[in-house]
């Protein structure tokens, strides 16, 4: 076994050395959410272009932002995938390079409803990758889904101790603000405080907060109703077929993750080529099928399994998204107010 291993290592070393000899190997440093890109896509891109993809992951927008901000000058990454409100924040702070639309094919195939949004007018800095919604999950084995239409249903006394919420200040305040008829992006301290008081009434009902894998409390049998991201329902249904997704009438939370190129990227050329590669309908369809979230690529949607394309959990009808709202960057002062009440909410009990 050992000589074999040694021989393999030497061969590998020779191949690497050989590549280095004729030309500088191209590298794409790709910083992405964990479990958010099929290995097959990376392999195919490497085979086709000869560009090696160095793939690193993060688990929150905050971690991505801190890394890009602190390592601003070191140009460690060529490509990243932040959510809407971080695209606007990073764009405003000059951390992003503009996207060269001339190098990309098929931008016009992207859903017009997800293009040219307030967080990045004209898609100057970002190209949509995957998108989804946060709404209500119900275990139909315990609760009749037909009776659940509103975020307010979570407050019903019979669900005490069976409610689950994501462990995310913006998600949770989305529920409180929407229920009171305010925007989920409110920066009005009085509205945020009112939402806090409303949410404080819900807290005794909450069994758990979970943002690692929000499907798990339902699968464990610990929660019957609560908040969830739609892709988690798709994944969770494999183990719990009664898990049902509902678009609340006050409005679901919309999210969209987009490709961006950091200002100091060493290889923006390779980053453009990768974005272009993912814009191909068959690649976008493959990603959506593997990862379980919706693709903004309308041409790719036609290639999906008809059962998936017709799944309202993933691809909502227009009436499902009435009142739905993207999360915007709130600015510094409002962020502090949200966190002030978030700490109070959690410590209040």
């Amino acid at each position: 076994m050992k000589p074999l291993l040694l021989a393999g290592t030497i061969t590998l070393a020779l191949i690497v050395a050989g590549c280095g000899a004729d030309r500088e190997p191209q590298v794409l440093n790709f910083y992405n959410w964990s479990e958010y890109m099929p290995q097959e896509v990376l392999d195919r891109f490497e085979r086709e272009t000869g560009i090696e993809v160095v793939y690193t992951t993060y688990d929150s927008n905050e971690a991505l932002y801190a890394k890009l901000k602190l390592l601003d000058e070191s140009s460690q990454y060529d490509l990243a995938v932040p959510s809407t409100y971080y695209v606007s924040k990073m764009g405003r702070e000059g951390l992003l390079a503009p996207i060269d639309h001339g190098k990309l094919h098929g931008l016009d195939q992207l859903d017009p409803q997800l293009r040219d949004q307030a967080f990045d007018p004209g898609n100057t800095y970002s190209v949509p990758y995957l998108w989804g919604t946060a709404g209500i999950a119900v275990d139909a084995a315990a609760i009749d889904p037909a009776g659940i239409t509103s975020w307010g249903d979570l407050w019903r006394p019979e669900f005490r101790g069976r409610v689950m919420m994501t462990n995310d200040v913006r998600d949770v305040f989305h529920v409180g603000l929407k229920l009171l008829g305010h925007s989920a992006n409110s920066t009005d301290p009085a509205q945020i405080e009112a939402a806090y008081h409303k949410l404080a009434e819900l807290l005794p009902s909450v069994r758990t907060f979970n943002s690692d894998a929000p499907r798990m409390p339902y699968l464990e049998g610990e929660a019957d109703i609560g908040m969830i991201w739609n892709g988690e329902v798709v994944t969770g249904r494999a183990d719990l077929p009664t898990l049902t997704y509902i678009y609340p009438r006050e409005g679901a939370a919309l999210w969209l993750d987009s490709f961006v190129i950091p200002k100091n990227a060493r290889n923006p050329e390779a980053a453009h080529r990768f974005i272009d590669f993912v814009l191909r309908p068959e690649i976008a369809a493959l990603i959506s099928t593997e990862i379980g979230y919706a693709t903004p690529n309308l041409a790719a949607r036609k290639l999906l399994d008809p059962a998936v394309a017709a799944d309202r959990t993933l691809y909502p009808q227009p009436e499902d998204l009435v009142n739905a709202e993207f999360q915007q960057d709130l600015g510094d002062a409002a962020t502090l107010i949200y966190h002030h009440y978030w700490d109070r909410l959690k410590a209040g009990r």
């Binding site: 929150s60 905050e62 971690a63 801190a66 462990n167 200040v169 807290l203 909450v206 069994r207 758990t208 907060f209 979970n210 409390p217 962020t335 502090l336 966190h339 978030w342 700490d343 959690k346 410590a347 009990r349």
Partner: peptide, 18 residues
């Protein structure tokens, strides 16, 4: 279930989220 706020949570929240 992340229902109890501890000193460690405060430190992490303030550095990353807030």
């Amino acid at each position: 279930g992340a229902r109890v706020l501890l000193v460690g949570n405060i430190i992490k929240n303030q550095f990353l989220d807030a």
